[in-house]
Amino acid sequence: MGCCYSFFCKDENSSQAGDVNERTHLLIDPVSNNVNIQRDSEDILSRNSSILPKKTDEQSALTRILQETAANVIDVAALGTHNLQQHDYLERMKLYNIRVQQIMNNSRQKFNRKGNCILQDIPNPERVLGSDPIAAEDLNLIISAVAGASAAISDIKVDHKEDLVVPFGLLNS
């Protein structure tokens, strides 16, 4: 109650300079003097308790805010401590290389098993790329052949020997 009384009688309190009278605070608490003004009526009830628990309330509230903020902050500088060591890099490199080799072998077996792949890698592409183009004889042969075939196919006509429309079932009636 002493704290509460000193709060309400604060305006008349002129003994801040150090004169000791009946209105002098027994315990000087700047936190309760400054912060309690902004508190709402619910907090007035809790002011009946002693000053020490209030202080811990403030501290715990501040600590809670600090923890919440710290939980929401991504500390980039602290991430450096999780960096991989050199031997970790080497181990992972070996592991990944082994995995890639396995997958390559599996896919190669698949292609070989299918056996219907027309195009394949060859060891010396210069030899193939540098080879002679199609012979003139073959070129003429294919061009004349396909032209002849095209002409022949365009000449195809259906020569029907029977009537296209047949009176079906009329003979029985």
Binding site: I134, D138, A149, S150
Partner: peptide
Amino acid sequence: SCIITTTGTVTGAIFK
């Protein structure tokens, strides 16, 4: 060897 070409709508292939 297989030689392929197209003339008009007809595609032909010759195997040699």
